[in-house]
C-alpha cells in the first residue's frame, strides 16, 4: 500500500467557450497513493455533489490509456508528469504530500473549452474526414499475406497508428500545431501499399484541413513528441512535409 497524501488542487473552471474562466482551489485530504488521477477527481466530485456544489467537468472514457479521451494539463504537462502515459494512467503516488497540483484544459484556438476541463476536439474528426482513410473497394477479405510488407515498414506504420488522437501534441505545442497528429494519421496509411495510391492527395487534403481549422505552423520544438502518451516520433512530421512538398511540386 502506498501512503496517503494530502495536497492542494487548483482546477480551471469555465462555463463555456466564450465565458471567462478562473481557478478554483480545493484541499484534498488523505488520498491513497494508488488512487488514479481520475479516481482522485471522482472523489473530489463526490465531495462537491454531497456539498451541493457543481462537480468539475472533465473528459474520460476507457481509463486504460487507449481511447484518447482523457485530456488534462497537469503541472505544465499534457497528461501529467509521466512520459508515455495518458492522464488515466497517472497515479497519485507520483505526487508529494503538501504539493499544489494545477490542472488546466488543453489550451488552443483549435480546441475551444466546452466546460471546465473538457475541450471540443472535433477538429481532429474533421481532419480525419478530409483524407484519413483508404477509398478503394476492398471486396472480400484477402489472405493476410497476399500483400507482402517489409517488417520495418509495417513497424513504422504501426508506431504511427498508435496515435490515439488525444490532442496532447496540440496542447504541448507553443504554436498550437497539430502536425504530430496529422503526420501520424497520414503516415499510418501512406507507408503501406494500400494507402500509397492516394498518398499525395491525402497529405494535401489533411494538411489543408489542419490549416483551415486554425492550428499553428510547426517550428520543430519537439514538445509534441516529448509529451505524446504514445511516443509518436516527429519523423512522421518529416514524412508529411516530404509528401506535401512532393505533391505541390507535382501540381
Amino acid at each position: 500500500m502506498d501512503k496517503n497524501i494530502s495536497f492542494t488542487l487548483k482546477i480551471w473552471r469555465q462555463n463555456g467557450p466564450k465565458e471567462k474562466g478562473h481557478f478554483d482551489t480545493f484541499q484534498m485530504k488523505d488520498i491513497p497513493g494508488d488512487t488514479s488521477f481520475l479516481e482522485m477527481l471522482d472523489i473530489l466530485n463526490e465531495q462537491l455533489i454531497s456539498e451541493g456544489k457543481e462537480p468539475v467537468v472533465f473528459d474520460h472514457d476507457c481509463r486504460e490509456g487507449i481511447c484518447g479521451m482523457c485530456s488534462l494539463y497537469i503541472n505544465g504537462h499534457p497528461h501529467g508528469p509521466a512520459t508515455g502515459a495518458t492522464t488515466c494512467q497517472i497515479y497519485m503516488r507520483r505526487f508529494q504530500d503538501g504539493d499544489t497540483i494545477t490542472v488546466e484544459p488543453w489550451r488552443s484556438a483549435g480546441f475551444p473549452v466546452i466546460k471546465d476541463l473538457m475541450v471540443d476536439r472535433s477538429a481532429f474528426d474533421k481532419i480525419m474526414q478530409a483524407g484519413g482513410y483508404v477509398s478503394v473497394r476492398t471486396g472480400a477479405p484477402q489472405d493476410a499475406n497476399a500483400i507482402l510488407i517489409p517488417k520495418p515498414i509495417a513497424d513504422e506504420a504501426m508506431d504511427a497508428a498508435s496515435c490515439i488522437g488525444c490532442g496532447a501534441c496540440v496542447a504541448a505545442c507553443k504554436n498550437g500545431s497539430a502536425m504530430l497528429f496529422v503526420s501520424a494519421k497520414v503516415s499510418q496509411l501512406n507507408l503501406l501499399p494500400q494507402g500509397k495510391p492516394e498518398a499525395l492527395k491525402r497529405a494535401k487534403a489533411m494538411l489543408s484541413k489542419m490549416d483551415e481549422l486554425g492550428f499553428g505552423n510547426c517550428t520543430n520544438t519537439r514538445a509534441c513528441e516529448a509529451e505524446c502518451p504514445k511516443c509518436v516520433s516527429i519523423t512522421n512530421i518529416a514524412r508529411l512535409n516530404r509528401d506535401f512538398i512532393r505533391a505541390k511540386l507535382k501540381d
Partner: peptide
Amino acid sequence: QNRQARGNERYAVTDRP
C-alpha cells in the same frame, strides 16, 4: 499566426521537457 493558434488563454504552469 502561431500565437493566434495558441488561443487567448495562456497556461498558468508551463514546464519544458
